[in-house]
Nucleic acid binder design. Structure first.
Length: 690
RNA sequence: GGCGAGGUAGCUCAGGUGGUUAGAGCGCAGCACUCAUAAUGCUGAGGUCGUGGGUUCGAGUCCCUCCCUCGCUACCA
């Protein structure tokens, strides 16, 4: 491998259907930004691109639901997210969008090029079509009865009850989820990408890092879970996938016989990286090809784990099939971030939204960057808690880093009126400090190169720790009384360490580094100076000390926790609310029910079930065994002796190997809690309920 | 029950291709210090690396059994 002179960094295009939360940031944008900033600091020719992914059925449907145009939805979130990224210092060279004409043109050209090379297989198939909505239906917008297990709620692509994967045409009584009508079958043509034809070279590329007999990357530098997931896909056998869709919101398929068809997301979103590059190049008067088609350029995709297959299999196939394009040298996908014990969920509002965070913690974007990098899910899922956020801020940012900087500045002002002192020529008695500094700097650099940002950040913090230790060991506040010359050496070194902090933290905490550099009157410092005692110039004046970070109090934290709990409760209420009223019935329908009072005589948990209790119930005239799904609300012990209402003429049903002879009635509230139904004066068993 | 992930110090977690006394941060205890946002530094507690087997000269690190936890899913008639 040569050492490329250019770097292209991409971060997954966020879907313009909602705002950005800490999971997105920790998963892709923060590591990408750290890496991009690191490369720029090293002076490498770096381009960092991203943009909004604005097409797809979900946006169309949402627009329809809200009575808006798709473009309105997309405009709203594009602007919101663009601003959130800016506020958090995500230093995209361009944040483009896929609704831009340049993108449509680029994606269409790409499609045409592939089509001319005969990469696709054109095939006509019958597909379900919703006549009322006048559109073909994606698999997941069709439900029906599963042909295998007769579950009435199966989706067009799979039945979640029995787990079998399906074709929409297999469903019994298919229904469109758009209109609720029965869809009709209609012929339509699509362009398929036969991925199975690419298995051989893909396998070699992923496992050996070799493509076209050339070493392209070192697989050892790739994360284990990334390679693992790719292998399991390839080993499971790749299949042909349609690259076109019958929709009207998207990039039009640029062929005469393809009206009302758009490119599928695989040929749309990732091409967004290319069109973003083109848009940037146009503006900057540069050549976009230098970043995509030159062997001098390394490309790295930053994504979350849900995007691995996309970026490691499908996009590479497309790029290679097109020819001329580079493949990524790494795809450092992160796993998922959880929040206070639960996974983040946009729909359930279980998230910390970037724009809301800044409203509550103004100008504290670096604190969140610090915490999210410290706990980034680089090798496995990890957890964000507000308590941890507070601890890391207070004990690490304030106590270690901010405090050290403050000590060095305050001492310099106190003893030398803010002038960086002149140290003696021979500082060899401090060699061990210099060695440690160099070591941390080197470690930090190596970890950054290896995409290990958590570890790299720990090394940066170690530099601040070193500074604190140095001051504690040398005690300049004592020495000043006896040996001012030595205090000059000590503060000279301390200030150099502070300057080192400014450099080392710059990729992670750009705003704080800027502040610190201002305090030190340091115009610029590149990455190469890291580890040296030559960043600051003796004789220069530094500014008066200001705190880089502020403590976060308990009240602020409990407020956030309360906020989370409140939104959680609210969304749960909204989800449940009141069930819709069922269809009206006649008295005859009701009188078919035979409801009786019964007394629970014995109760036990059903083995290997976590919901079912097995109850023996005395109905007066006979005894019944009934299974009831209440184990999460009642223990077996407390059920014994309870009076219940039983549906006594319900057909028996076997569950978990036991026959249930009836059903116990329960009330369920909006929280999903269950409660028994009783008579006021405990009538005798067998009494009729009507 | 099925699928996925995981069980390492009080807590949160590191521990590529097996190899000397198993690590970090926080918390805790003691000591030092007072320049600093009661901040910092040093020292310590002494963890059967979930269980039981196996492979090996040698296993948190590989194989098998079992137990437990979490997520999705099934069982709520």
């Amino acid at each position: 491998m040569n050492s490329p002179s250019k770097k292209l960094i991409t971060a997954a295009l966020p879907y313009a259907n909602g705002p950005i939360h800490i999971g997105h940031l920790a998963g892709a944008y923060l590591p990408a930004d750290i890496y991009a900033r690191y490369l720029r600091l090293k002076g490498e020719d770096t381009l960092f691109v991203c943009g909004s992914d604005e097409h797809g059925a979900a946006i169309t449907l949402r627009a329809k639901k809200e009575g808006k145009k798709p473009q309105e939805i997309v405009d709203q979130y594009h602007e919101l997210n663009k601003k959130a990224f800016e506020d958090f210092g995500i230093s995209f060279d361009i944040f483009h969008r896929t609704s831009d004409p340049l993108h449509h043109e680029t994606a269409q050209d790409f499609f045409l090029a592939l089509n001319e090379k005969g990469v696709f297989e054109k095939e006509e198939k019958e597909q379900f079509y919703d006549e009322e909505f006048q559109q073909f239906l994606a698999d997941r917008y069709i439900t029906g009865t599963c042909p295998k297990c007769h579950n009435p709620g199966a989706y067009g692509d799979q039945c979640e009850k029995c787990g079998s994967s399906l074709n929409p045409q297999e469903l019994i009584d298919p229904v469109s989820t758009l209109s609720g009508n029965k869809p009709i079958l209609k012929k339509t043509t699509h362009w398929f990408l036969p991925m199975q034809e690419h298995e051989t070279w893909l396998k070699e590329w992923i496992e050996e890092g070799v493509v076209d007999s050339k070493k392209q990357h070192d697989p050892k530098s790739w994360r284990k879970h990334v390679i693992g997931q790719c292998k399991s896909w390839i080993d499971g056998g790749l299949q042909a996938r349609a690259m076109t869709r019958d929709l009207d919101w998207g990039v039009k398929v640029p062929l005469k016989d393809a009206s009302n068809k758009v490119l599928y997301v695989w040929l749309d979103a990732p091409i967004g990286y290319i069109s973003a590059t083109k848009a940037w190049a146009k503006k900057e008067n540069k050549d976009w090809k230098a970043y995509w088609q030159s062997s001098e350029t390394d490309m790295v995709h930053f994504i979350g784990k849900d995007n691995i297959v996309f970026h490691c299999i499908i996009f590479p196939i497309i790029l290679k099939a097109h020819g001329n394009y580079n493949l990524p040298v790494n795809v450092p996908a992160n796993e998922f971030l959880n929040l206070e014990g639960q996974k983040l969920s946009t729909s359930r509002n279980w998230a910390v939204w970037l724009h809301e965070y800044l409203a509550d913690f103004p100008e504290k974007q670096d604190v969140l960057r610090y915490v999210l990098c410290s706990i980034a899910p680089e090798t496995k899922d990890s957890e964000f808690t507000w308590e941890d956020f507070q601890t890391r801020n207070n004990s690490e940012l304030v106590g270690i880093y901010g405090n050290f900087v403050n000590r060095a500045l305050v001492l310099t002002h106190k003893y030398f009126d803010g002038e960086i002192p002149q140290a003696k020529a021979d500082l060899s008695e401090y060699q061990s400090i210099v060695d440690s500094l160099k070591q941390y700097a080197q470690n930090c650099n190596q970890y950054l190169q290896a995409y290990r940002f958590r570890d790299a950040l720990v090394e940066a913090m170690a530099i601040a720790r070193l500074g604190n230790k140095f001051l504690a060991d040398t005690e300049p506040w004592k020495l000043i009384k006896t040996d001012e010359a030595k205090v000059k050496d000590i503060l000279f070194i301390s200030l150099q360490i502070a300057a080192n902090c400014a450099v080392a933290f710059e990729p992670f905490l750009p705003d704080s580094s800027k502040k610190l550099k201002n305090l030190l009157n340091l115009k610029s410092a590149n990455w190469e100076s890291l580890g040296s005692l030559e960043i600051l110039q003796s004789g220069n004046i530094i500014n008066k000390a200001e705190h880089l970070f502020q403590k976060i109090e308990d009240e602020q934290i409990s407020l956030q926790v309360q906020k989370l709990k409140a939104t959680e409760k609210q969304t749960r209420m909204e989800e449940k609310k009141y069930l819709p009223l069922k269809e009206m019935i006649q008295f005859d329908d009701f009188s078919k029910l035979d409801l009786r009072l019964g007394t629970v005589t014995t109760a036990e948990a059903v083995k290997k079930s976590n919901k079912l209790l097995q109850l023996d119930i005395d109905l007066g005239f006979e005894k019944r065994t009934i299974l009831s799904g209440i184990a999460k609300h009642y223990t077996a012990e407390e059920m014994v002796g309870k009076q219940v209402v039983v549906v006594a003429n319900l057909a028996p049903r076997k569950m978990m190997g036991v026959e249930s002879q009836g059903m116990v009635l329960m009330a369920e509230n909006s929280e999903g809690e269950l409660n028994l139904i009783n008579t006021e004066d405990s009538f005798e068993p067998g009494s009729n309920v009507s």
